[in-house]
Structure formats: C-alpha cells, structure tokens
Write a protein that binds this DNA or RNA. Structure first.
Lengths: 230, 230
DNA sequence: CTACAGTATCTGGTACGCCATAATACGATT
DNA sequence: AATCGTATTATGGCGTACCAGATACTGTAG
C-alpha cells in the first residue's frame, strides 16, 4: 500500500500535548503584549494562570528562551525579552536578505501558481486594510511571505524568518498602523509580485529588500520616538 | 563608585547552571556523533548518563528540539534529528546569503582591523590543515566567520548562522576532509579577505557565496554517496 | 535614622509517583 | 497451528512535594 493512501485513512487525533498548548498561550501572550517586555515571568504564577504544573511551565520557558522571546537573568529568573533598537534593525536586515532570496527564486521559477497565490494574499491584505482589521493584516502578510518561501521549497528559511519575526511582532503591529503604510505597504508588495511575474529575479530581490527596509525605517522611528517617553 | 570599577573586583563565578552544562554535553554528544541520527533519546537513560534529574533532561531535550537537533515523534519520544539532503542544501543557501551580507558590510567598512583579524583566523586554518588537525580547522573556520559577523555588529545573524551550523556539523567535518578542500577552502576564503581589503562589497559578497556553494556541493556529493550504503 | 537581622520570595534542582499509550510477550480458544 | 485477547513492560507526559541558595523586603534595636 502506498504511503499516501495510508495517510488518507489515518484517523486525525488532537495530538497536541499540554506543553504545546501552554507554549502557544504564553507566546501569544507575549507577542500581543499581555506580558510586557521586562515583565518577570514567575513560574508559580504562570502555573496558576495556565492551570498546569511547574514541569510544563519550565519547559515552556526554556523553549521561549531559545526562541529569544524570554531572557533569563541569573539568580533572578525569566523575564520577557527587551527588544533594543539595534537588534530590531538586525532582524529586519536578515529578513531582507532571506525574503529577497526567496523572491528571486520565485521569479526564476516563472510559475503562474506562485503569482496567483501571492496575489490572493495581497488582495487579503488590501481588504484587511480597508476593513481596518489590523490583526488580519498581520496574518495575511505572514501568509504572503509564507507562500513566497514555501512555493520554492524553502521551509528552513521560512522557519528562520518566522522565528525572528515573533521577536519584533509588537513592532510590526505598530508599523502597519502608520498612516502611509496602508498604501505603501501593499504597493511595495505588488512590486515584488510584478517582478516575479515578469521573471525579473534581480527586481524581485530588490523589491523585497525595499519593502523590509521601509518597515525597518518606520520601526526605528517608532522605537526611538517611544524610548524617551517610556 | 563607578560601575566599571565595581565590575572589576567582581568575583568570577561559574554561573553556568546545571541545565546549561547538560545542554552542552548532549549537544556535543550529538554533533560529534556519539548519538547517531535516528537514535532514541530515552529520558531516564539520559538521566543516568548525565547524572541529573529528569526535569533537567527534559528541559535540555526541549531546547535541542527547538534548535532542530532533536525531533519529537508523537507518542514515541525524542530522537536525534535526521538530516536530509534537501534541508542541508537549504541551510548552506541561507548561510551563503547571510555570510555574503556580512562580507559585503565588512568590505564597505574598509577597516584594517577587520582585515587583520580575518587574516589571523585564515592563517590558523592554514596551519591546522598543515597539521592535519581537523578539529582545529573547524574551530578556526568558525572563528573566521565569527569575526566576519561581529566586526560589523551583526550578532543576531551570527546567532542564526551558528544555530543552523550545528545541524550540519557532521557534514562539515566530512567536507573539510575532502582532498581538494584543504587547498581550495582557504583559497576561497582569502578571496573574501582580498575583496574586503580593497573595499569591493560586491566581490566580497560573491566570494562568500562561492565558498559556501562549494561546501554545499561537496556536502551533497558526500551525502548522496553515503545514502545507498547506509 | 541607620544598620542589621530575620523573613518572604523565587529560581534551580531533585525525587517520586501516577496515568496513558504503545509495543511486546504470553496464553487461551477455536 | 493460527489468531485473538490480555497482561506486562517501557516510556513519555504530567503533577506534587521538597530543599538549597540567592535576593528583596521589612521591622526592630541601637
């Protein structure tokens, strides 16, 4: 029997361990600001809030630590990682390099399916902006880049980008709210798609780089404006 | 009293938690092949071998899982991650993009210190090859790239590269043993340094890309040659 | 009002126990 | 003898209790 067939009749099981559920909860809590940068994450408090044991909480904290979302002060314990401006810029820079690479690969493949998938995500972004649904903007933007990477089978790079992106997630939600971003963001992304459509690898690379460079610039402005107030 | 002075008399403490020690041990055991890909990592056995409690072992396993060195089969438990050839190629590709980026930045900075530091590492590599000390070759190669990234303050990218590199570590130790690598490897790296010295960003970028591309090609050859035998 | 001692808090780490599941071995039935 | 059902074992997932060491807080005595 073929493997595919065997998979087809396989019974779907929840399969999520308690740990994974807790991990998702805490990560989410951090990225949408329920826990603020610098906040202490007291193990036993988390146990109570999540309704799980310390064993689970500790594993979750270790995991988030290796994701860079949580920092561990010696003899003090875990806190939500602070994002300094330089680190944010570095993350944007890396994303630029990797997304540019993926965009170039997409362009070189010249596949109509890629273009169609990207345009669908892009339309989703435009709609979300129109509806003022910022959460949906983020989701659709993620999906845009997700297709960009997975269409050319670059799941490892996508993993890296994802890993880095959660660390700047609250920045992202600030940059997309910027006035001009609702017009320029989709415009830059459509330039990426256009270059891919005409098979212009170099153009796609540069367009992708430009897009994150713009995001980086906005983030820097936002971050340095917030710093003195905070 | 100034902070610096206070630091100066501060007593140096191990500061490494047991968990970190265990983490290093297990990671090392995996990367130099004491645990082979596909091996099961039985928690209670590891407890005995490491002399630590299950809690610590579990946290270590979670950490390694998020590093990609360990995979978790549902209802089966953790095993040493298998490295498939496609994933390895992706990792080399990402390294190319990031190391190329760093090399370009180094070239654009035109700093003699960078060139000096790189040449020192390069000399170390040449010596290690001459002495047939392959472990030293790996260490010095790492140090070469470490300076490449840190000299232009790209510690995040360096972290990413490092994270990915451990996953292909046993491949690295195979590629550097290849006959021609002992000549071509340092040659390609010296091309990077040359380009940096003359401030040729584009050249440095391409030279860095070429170097990992060559490594990737060797790795692919090695890996596909080993597959049928295994 | 300050210095010091005691106390509460919290993490790092350990030990142990319970449960669920998967695999295997074993035994009974046809 | 083949098959089916059951008991056992191995193992991970999870919880609880406990201790040691570091730190932060607090109240009291001088």
């Amino acid at each position: 029997m073929s493997g595919a067939l065997k998979d087809a009749i396989r019974v779907e099981r929840p399969a999520k361990t308690l740990r994974e559920l807790a991990l998702d909860k805490v990560r989410e809590a951090i990225v949408n600001g329920y826990f603020r940068p610098g906040d202490r994450l007291v193990e036993r408090d988390l146990c109570a809030q999540l309704g799980v044991s310390r064993t689970v909480v500790r594993e979750v904290l270790r995991h988030l630590e290796s994701e860079g979302l949580v920092a561990n002060l010696p003899n003090k314990g875990p806190i939500v990682a602070q994002l300094d401006i330089d680190e944010a810029k570095q993350i944007y820079e890396i994303r630029g390099a990797l997304e540019g690479m993926a965009a170039r690969l997409c362009a070189e493949r010249r596949s109509p399916e890629i273009v169609a998938a990207l345009e669908e995500s892009l339309a989703g972004i435009r709609n979300s902006y129109r509806d003022n649904d910022m959460a949906a903007v983020l989701t659709n933007t993620s999906s845009f880049y997700h297709t960009l990477f997975t269409m050319v089978d670059r799941n490892v790079a996508w993993g890296v980008v994802n890993l880095l992106t959660v660390r700047i997630n609250h920045l992202r939600s600030m940059t997309i709210k910027t006035e001009r971003r609702s017009i320029e963001g989709p415009l830059q992304m459509s330039k990426i798609v256009d270059a891919i459509r005409r098979g212009d690898g170099e153009g796609a690379y540069r367009a992708a780089m430009d897009h994150v460079a713009a995001a980086s610039a906005i983030a820097e402005a936002v971050l340095s404006a917030k710093k003195p107030a905070d």
